[in-house]
């Protein structure tokens, strides 16, 4: 929620990025302050997921202009792993399966890497086991998922829970949730969003990238941004999402064209 003594966590100015020589982001401006929940909505191909991946540092996307300041640092000076350790988290739309690595091993490795960076205690396998089981309760996850390969054979919903479990472990300052609602049935959506809400504090911020309004019934955004052709073309409150749900996206771009033409 918006609150008085919030700090600016993320300052995006005029961000441009290309992939395979095609410009996808054409000048994005966004300010995210601690405690806030932002929803970025838009049609397929509007650039939402590209924006999420650029923030996390995916090498396939080349930043060609603009700046992103994360907690006072130039984000683009940091490698993806350094961003993660500094507190940027991306929940993947399609989490990767890694057979051969036990989920518990992977989760502990990630947790300890981030703990080390923050000068905090690392946990041995036994300590971590207790710790992670507690966190799993938040997402109503069966502890059996610790022993399986990372995301291996997980259903869509199980993968998304595993993503939010990682968010719970790494305690990021800015969490970007890329279409976390896709592929979830109504029960899983309730559980996952409940988990996210419990992880939301006045010191962190959440950016929800989504196509549909339905997740916003559960995680109420402070700001809703509409993305179109690589730009944020409209920003409003939570009621904007409802309007998009009933009217679709076309009117926003039409309005945008009218403003541009005037």
């Amino acid at each position: 929620m918006i609150h008085q003594d919030s700090r600016t966590l993320l300052e995006v100015r005029g961000l441009r990025a290309v992939v395979n020589g095609i410009e996808i982001l054409k000048g994005i401006d966004l300010t995210v302050r601690s405690g806030e929940v932002h929803a970025i909505m838009g049609t397929n191909g509007s650039g939402k997921s590209t924006f999420a991946k650029v923030l996390a540092g995916h090498s396939a996307y080349e930043v060609t202009g603009g700046s992103v300041i994360f907690e006072g640092h130039n984000l683009f000076d940091l490698k993806p792993e350094e961003r993660a350790r500094a507190g940027v988290f991306l929940a993947f739309q399609y989490p990767i399966e890694i057979p051969g690595v036990a989920n518990s091993h992977f989760l502990r490795l990630a947790y300890n890497t981030v703990q080390e960076q923050r000068g905090q205690d690392e946990l041995d396998p036994l300590e971590f086991d207790d710790f992670v089981r507690e966190k799993m309760k938040l997402l109503e996850m069966n502890p059996d998922f610790l022993d399986r390969g990372v995301n291996e054979g997980f259903s869509g919903g199980e993968k998304k829970r595993n993503e939010i479990l990682q968010m719970a472990l790494l305690e990021p300052r800015v969490a970007i949730l890329d279409e976390t609602d896709s592929g979830l049935d109504i029960d899983a959506l309730r559980i996952v969003t409940n988990g996210v809400n419990q992880l939301s504090t006045k010191d962190n911020a959440i950016i929800l990238v989504t196509h549909y309004q339905r997740m916003l019934n559960y995680i109420v955004p402070d700001f809703v941004h509409v993305m179109h052709a690589g730009r944020i073309i409209k920003t409003g409150g939570k009621e904007l999402a409802l309007e998009l749900e009933t009217r679709g996206y076309d009117w926003v771009s039409a309005e945008q064209r009218a403003v541009a033409g005037a």
Binding site: G57, H58, A84
Partner: peptide
Amino acid sequence: FYLKSRGL
């Protein structure tokens, strides 16, 4: 990228 995005 997935692993690096988790700090590795």
